[in-house]
Amino acid sequence: MNKNNKIPFKTPQGYFDSFEDRLMDKLSTEENFMPKAKGFTVPDNYFETFNDKLKGKLNNEPKVIQLYPVKKILAFAASVAAIAIIFLGYNWNSTEELSISALANTDIEAYFENNEFDLTSYEIAEVLPFTDTEFSNMLNSSIENENILDYLSDNTIDFEELNLQDNE
């Protein structure tokens, strides 16, 4: 068995022939990712049937839900901020605490919290890395009338609510 005479060791018969099988056996038992002593179990055949279930769900879901393009989100956020500014415009100069950044942060945050985008905050952050500077840039830049009108026509059910007369 020993091809190299300098090494005075021997291996059991068939050791190298069966090595691969034994290694694979060991690997397959070790590849069990069941966490140690955690106590959690899964229903029988859960992992075996998971693929089919997932396929069914993938096929039933509406086809394209793309991540919102940055421009769209920016226009959107700017519109939200604009609306917030319009509604709270009266107190704008009288109250010091109502700074632009505080107002925009809370309003936009609340808007994103209360509306279902099917996006985690992490994903939004990934496409839209808000920093303080970018926030103020966005707020200082002028908002196209078109965007405001679009936003209002999409989101206003009752135009009377806007109290347009009071502002004229």
Partner: peptide
Amino acid sequence: VFFEGDEIQL
């Protein structure tokens, strides 16, 4: 039903 941990695991 899918938690079979003993007292210490809980």
